[in-house]
Design a protein around this nucleic acid. Structure first.
Lengths: 394, 394
DNA sequence: GTGTTGGCGAGGCGCCGACAA
DNA sequence: TTGTCGGCGCCTCGCCAACAC
């Protein structure tokens, strides 16, 4: 095994994006990015020992993104990316460079040919059945012969590891509805699914049906440095979550980056921790703004069913370096913010400039006439960063 | 969680030793040891990137062993030790120091009050029962009231995490035998036990019954650098084994050791990889020998049931540094050897001097009149190092 | 003394339509 | 349209003595 780890199979990028969520974008191959050791450390599960003494690790390092492996955790099916970066000289970047084209294809394709559903109690606990929303059955699943009574078929779906799962798909009951019966319970048990987790069905370009998992976010790891830590992944031993990004690998990546050697990082898009590999264009663009307190901004998030993108609104309360001791020149989490709906993101006090978008400064009305969201969204207490997803109840 | 990792509960050292096997000894607290980055790297699951350039990491580093945490993997129950080391100056060790006293207590106590059995097919697969060897039932288990018919009791055993498991212990059948029925099947499933794995029952000093696990060795990780790699842990996804000691933590330990700062290592005694933290006395003692080809030696191993220690015999074929490029002055695996029974340890070509014991040179007789072992032992194809254990069939 | 087998009993898993939101 | 519930059939899990070595 060990030696083979590097040879782990890559995932269909489309399925990867369907599982990661609509707001997750990996910068294109060979594009320029900034690597933030500070953010990498937040992505890890414990205190990082940056050994260099005196500290010679810059707060951000310009790199070329030379490779991306789209992968999935063997236990939890959670998607992650292994990204290879080659440090560049700081003056290799021209802030006026164009935004790199392309990419976003897998992204959009994934959104169109996939469907996500959050498991109900009945889906997860009771007699082993899964209630298939009509839209999913009719647009994602293979066509069902409605002339037989009852209409039944066996559907086969491949998970993120390429393993096939069989389900009996039946259309029955009064009123009629689509159900997965035989096979579903086994899947729930094997994958240790719980009510609140989501599953993603996707039709791949070759016509195969795929099935992915989005674990419910119960905090995840990588909470802001000042806000304590998450609770681990429900249904799995905490140790599992804890091993995802070990502090030593952050220290090694930072050390290699600092001396200009190629290095690799692992990024879990659904870990509620912000991306620490940031498109150079996006960063430099955001730093052209003269950030100051009082500015109004919005931050995108995705609704649970991936059907639309909504926005959190807020006001900048303070522009201040997050860690003046170690990274005095870092834009990481530069903005201290106040949210319009503070109960939803109470753990998020600071965000990085490139995550938000300025909005025209309209004098606030108290109380506001319109909530920016039609339904009052509920976010888990530890939801942290963009992209975030709303936990929405039906 | 994350932050709490360091606070993981420690194990009863006696149970730890019962699970680790009779030949595993951790050097005493505050004793002097040598740390081998080379051996640490073998203990890891992938290629280690020792960053220092040029390479300033010595092949072995004198340290004081300042702390040991006896621990167990949350998933597999496999025992491991987290050892804290503080580098010393090389001249802080006097080769004529006495062998440190004490220790070995947990060791011997564990051997006396514990019993190990390798699971048969029937124990692991069939109708949920476990056949308890009479000796185990009579000396380790609580006393059974034989006057009732049938004699039954509920026994409670704590696993390495302190979790209690209940079993129905019954004495029945013709001929009479001790069995564990209700509760056993659940235990097998939860712990993912398979035929070939061993369980250890131990009576702790406070009278509590404990139950530990020794997974069957199907190679494990850390095979010799030149002999390919193991197959991972049966019944668990390979990723689990692969995460035990990540290369980055080896790199970090070696880097800290090289600059004289305290560091921690994790050691899995049952990983079929040799100890890389070696008692300084033991090492210096072994290096007083003028090793040369042709010398006869023996290496201890433990029989599967832990009841006795046996020896592998062999002849030194060559005395040669294992890695002349990186560690030209290292005694690690200095001895290239030929075994008397080469089929048993065919993967072990090189051993370190402190693992073996010279034996008086008796002219070899071909064919030998006596096998050094009464029964011909069978060892797994990838059994690697001392201490090793013999897979013995009843 | 203990590993393996087949019998057989009971309990829980999983399929179902009836509701209701 | 779809989440939840109670009913109930079946099948697998697990207890057991009979054998075998």
């Amino acid at each position: 095994m060990k030696m083979m780890d590097k040879a782990e199979k890559c995932l269909d990028p489309q399925l990867w994006h369907a599982c990661a969520g609509g707001l997750v974008q990996i910068p294109p191959l060979n594009s320029k990015v900034f690597y933030f050791p500070q953010g990498h450390a937040e992505h890890s599960n414990g205190p990082v020992c940056f050994m260099a003494s005196p500290n010679i690790i810059p707060s951000f390092i310009l790199c070329k993104l030379t490779a991306v492996n789209y992968m999935a955790d063997r236990y939890t099916d959670e998607v992650f990316a292994r990204i290879t970066l080659v440090p560049l000289k700081a003056d290799d970047f021209d802030p006026d460079d164009d935004w790199p084209k392309m990419a976003h294809q897998n992204h959009e394709k994934a959104a169109k040919s996939s469907f996500a559903k959050t498991l109900t109690q009945s889906d997860a606990n009771n007699g082993g059945g899964f209630s298939v929303p009509r839209y999913c059955a009719e647009t994602i699943f293979p066509g069902l012969d409605y002339s037989s009574k009852p209409p039944v078929q066996t559907i086969v779906a491949k998970d993120v590891h390429g393993e096939s799962w069989k389900f009996r798909h039946i259309y029955r009951g009064t009123p009629r509805r689509h159900l997965l019966t035989t096979g579903w319970s086994n899947f729930v048990n094997q994958k240790k699914l719980m009510a609140g987790d989501s599953i993603v069905f996707m039709r791949a370009e070759n016509g195969e049906l795929c099935i992915g998992i989005r674990r419910a976010k119960l905090g995840g790891f990588g909470g802001g440095p000042e806000f304590g830590v998450g609770q681990g992944l429900k249904g799995f031993d905490d140790a599992d979550g804890a091993r995802k990004v070990v502090p030593e690998s952050v220290a090694q990546a930072a050390a290699l980056a600092a001396i200009g050697r190629q290095f690799e990082v692992v990024y879990y898009p659904r870990a509620s921790a912000p991306e620490f590999v940031v498109s150079a264009y996006s960063l430099s663009h955001s730093m052209k703004v003269q950030w100051s307190s009082g500015m109004r901004f919005k931050m995108p998030f995705e609704t649970e069913d991936s059907s639309r993108i909504s926005w959190f609104m807020g006001t900048i309360s303070l522009v201040q370096v997050a860690d003046p001791i170690r990274w005095p020149d870092s834009p990481w989490r530069l903005l201290q913010v106040a949210w319009d709906e503070p109960d939803l993101l109470q753990n998020v006090r600071r965000v990085s400039p490139w995550l938000v978008e300025l909005v025209p400064e309209i004098p606030t009305i108290h109380p506001p006439l319109f909530s920016p969201l039609r339904k009052k969204p509920r976010a888990s207490a530890t939801t942290d960063f963009s992209p975030v997803e709303q936990v929405q109840h039906h």
